[in-house]
Amino acid sequence: MSVIIKEVDRRDYGTIVRLTGEIDLHHSPDFHQALVTECARNPAKLIIEMSDVQYIDSSGVGSLVEIYRRVKKGGNRMILVAPGPRVAGVLEITKLDQFFTIASTEDEAFQL
């Protein structure tokens, strides 16, 4: 388990990937690979819990966009959960807050 991927919770109705730390150019390759691995399992919902992420840069955001496309191509959904102010700020600046589906809680994400 990398520093960025805190926990992977695989359930019948989807997978929750809980993140932590700072997702930057240094950590993005491992972060991306871990999400690619989860995508390969083809979960109906890939829920990415971000409340403990302290920093994300364009490389991390780029990974999220790429994973989103993979998930969508497989006919599944990807939902971001509880991005903190710093992460939300980056999503806002890049206007990706209008692109991703964002939920407040994991439960809400499962209900979407």
Binding site: D57, S58, V61, G62, S63, V65, E66, V90, I93, T94, K95, L96, F99
Partner: peptide, 18 residues
């Protein structure tokens, strides 16, 4: 342009915005 949603190319936009 941000309308092109794809990985990469966001760094300069972020810097200039901030």
């Amino acid at each position: 342009p941000l309308e092109e949603v794809r990985p990469g190319g966001l760094g300069v936009h972020i810097i200039r915005t901030i």
